[in-house]
Write a protein that binds this DNA or RNA. Structure first.
Ligand code: FES
Ligand code: FES
Lengths: 153, 153
DNA sequence: AAAATACCTTACTAATTTTGTCAAGTATTA
DNA sequence: TAATACTTGACAAAATTAGTAAGGTATTTT
């Protein structure tokens, strides 16, 4: 239930790789492909969307690749996912493009809206910087959950 | 992004209708169908799952229908959705049935797990009783958000 | 008994969405 | 001018969703 598509997942992971090159080293699609195990052709599609959204910019030619347009701390996960999967909309009733005639008098409408707002708020607090900082900690394995800012415990 | 299937949505709305009959008045599929605008055939599929899960029980024959097996306050939304859509699993890496070889060393894994845990915790706090109590308030329209326990504000 | 009510079960399918691939381009640098 | 690397749009297989359809079982009322 409530799955994220691979596009969204790969997108975040690709953004993480690009963030590692910030601010001066463009990261090529090929590098991302190898490190994150996603095909070059699929990444092209994903990165194009993110570039048009202004989250990254591209440098063509040899030595080129992709660069973040802002500091990793200024790029939150929600903004990445929104470009690739549209707004958080638990039900189509919530989708700005769709709507629903039953909204008034619907007992569940506020529930879904509230859940969506919570999800969005959470994803907005996590940035690429958080992922970058977490990376070295990952080598310490899963033994010390408290050190993770967004651990489950 | 993060959509709920119609099965889950209809399921919660159906459970709300059944809860209205608690503890003594069985609610028929036809009534649910008319009040919530979902086909009888589709509801049969949904209610069958919920019955097998033990959330509701059925009374056959004239005067029959469906009844909650517990107090509305004891039935949370997460338990309904889990039966109809499986566990919260933002990514397939999190799905108990699937798994992922990259888990260790994956910077996003904990992020998705944490999000999933938050969603689940939220849905576990909302029960059918909350929906029943909310119903009369809905007639006051959307003017007084603070009165709703799970308003967005 | 039999008619009416209402749930039960399985199978099937049309539509949609997801998850990509492919081919042919454009821009930049060495 | 050759090599590198991004750009774009079309296309398609696979999976999932969102149902429908048909026939069966159990219970109550007359
Ligand atoms: S059915 Fe659309 S708002 Fe509830
Ligand atoms: S890719 Fe599966 S855990 Fe990150």
């Amino acid at each position: 239930m409530l799955k994220l598509s691979t596009k969204g997942q790969y997108g975040v992971r690709a953004m993480f790789e690009i963030a590692r090159g910030y601010p001066e080293s463009p990261v090529t699609i090929k590098e991302i492909s190898e490190r994150q195990d996603v095909s070059v052709a699929y990444l092209e599609q994903i990165l194009n969307k993110l570039r048009r959204a202004g989250l990254i910019r591209s440098v063509k030619g040899p030595g080129g690749g992709y660069l973040l347009t802002k500091d990793p701390g200024g790029v939150n996960i929600a903004s990445i996912l929104k470009e690739l999967e549209g707004p958080v909309a638990i039900t189509s009733c919530l989708d700005p493009e769709e709507g629903c005639a039953r909204v008034e008098g619907c007992v569940t409408h506020l529930l879904w809206r509230s859940l969506g707002a919570k999800i969005e708020a959470f994803l907005e607090t996590i940035t690429l910087r958080d992922l970058l900082e977490k990376e070295p900690l990952l080598k310490d394995l899963d033994t010390d959950h408290k050190r993770y800012r967004f651990g489950v415990a």
